[in-house]
């Protein structure tokens, strides 16, 4: 059959192209532009090669040292977040009732923190944690625990970690719950008939069946925690000192605070690349493991 060629069809694609151009391509090109140029002021830019990148990736320079320190903080934060939120989320999912009106009530309660805007979460915890008037800070101080999230780095880290756990464990729990619900009842029956105990049911049935859902949970929680910005910027502002200055906070300080566009642009590109690479490695490794099993 002969197909009629009608070039007017391109008009239908045009809106998407324009949208993509302005939403991704133009901003990205701007950042790339800044990352390879320097300026002497008066809006005069000249080509600077890869100097910004060289500086950034050399930890002996001022900017390189900041970047490396922030990257280590980010990695540590994401690692601890995954370490706490995944087991806790799965544990919570196992405790959610499976039948009756309690299901809805529990799910709503668990999902509630997920529905609060990030900056509101930050504000709630900023006030909650204050040593002078915040409930948490006040109680801890009166219990004799040396807690002050504006002066003590350990307190600041603990506050941000607990806040993230409070904010996001619900998502892991919901994902895991959906995974658990999809396990046919026959598996549990078979285990009961075999005389298998609770641990053995978890280890040999529930955990393997949850694997796919947990890959998604790890991916989402890693990306979320690695790109965290709003909450710590409100609660600690990156302090005390530089102790909670994650990459995103540092980036904003450099690019917008100091209007250091070259360093800022190079940093945001490398930051972006690191996130993409880690996610790609995660995804590839985990799906590869999965494929080997599904042959």
């Amino acid at each position: 059959m002969e197909k009629a060629i009608n070039n007017r069809a391109w008009f239908f694609v045009l809106p998407v192209l324009v949208f993509v151009l302005f939403s991704s391509l133009v901003p990205l090109m701007t950042v790339i532009n800044y990352s390879v140029q320097d300026t002497m002021g008066q809006n005069n830019f000249f080509f600077n090669g890869i100097a910004w990148f060289q500086n950034l990736l050399d930890p002996t320079t001022d900017i390189g040292g900041r970047f490396a320190a922030a990257l280590v903080r980010n990695l540590l934060f994401s690692f601890v977040v995954l370490l706490i939120e995944l087991p806790l989320g799965v544990g919570a999912a196992l405790c959610i009732p499976r039948h009756g009106w309690k299901v809805g009530a529990t799910l709503v309660l668990i999902a509630l923190p997920l529905l609060i805007p990030y900056n509101v979460v930050g504000t709630i915890w900023q006030i909650f944690a204050r040593a002078d008037i915040g409930l948490l800070g006040y109680v801890l101080t009166h219990l004799g625990i040396a807690y002050n999230d504006t002066q003590d780095p350990t307190s600041a880290w603990a506050t941000i970690l607990v806040m993230d756990v409070w904010h996001w464990t619900g998502m892991v729990a919901l994902l895991a719950y959906a995974g658990l619900k999809s396990i046919p009842d026959a598996f549990y029956q078979a285990a009961r008939i075999d005389g298998a105990g609770r641990w053995s049911v978890f280890r040999n049935i529930e955990l393997p069946k949850l694997q796919k859902v947990l890959v998604i949970a790890v991916l989402l929680r890693f990306m979320g925690s690695f790109m965290i910005y709003t909450e710590p910027s409100i609660v600690t502002g990156g302090g005390p000192g530089e102790s909670t200055s994650f990459l995103s906070l540092d980036l904003v300080k450099i690019a917008l605070g100091q209007v250091d566009l070259g360093n800022g642009a190079a940093m945001s590109l490398v930051y972006n690349l690191i996130t993409l690479t880690i996610c790609w490695v995660f995804f590839t490794v985990m799906t590869q493991l999965d494929r080997r099993k599904d042959v």
């Binding site: 009961r192 008939i193 005389g195 280890r203 040999n204 955990l207 393997p208 069946k209």
Partner: peptide, 20 residues
């Protein structure tokens, strides 16, 4: 209790321990 009864069961779904 179930575990003390001499019972075995096979289901319509293929029920095996996935990780064993």
């Amino acid at each position: 209790p179930v575990r003390r009864r001499s019972v075995a069961m096979v289901y319509q779904q293929f029920v095996n321990y996935p990780s064993l």
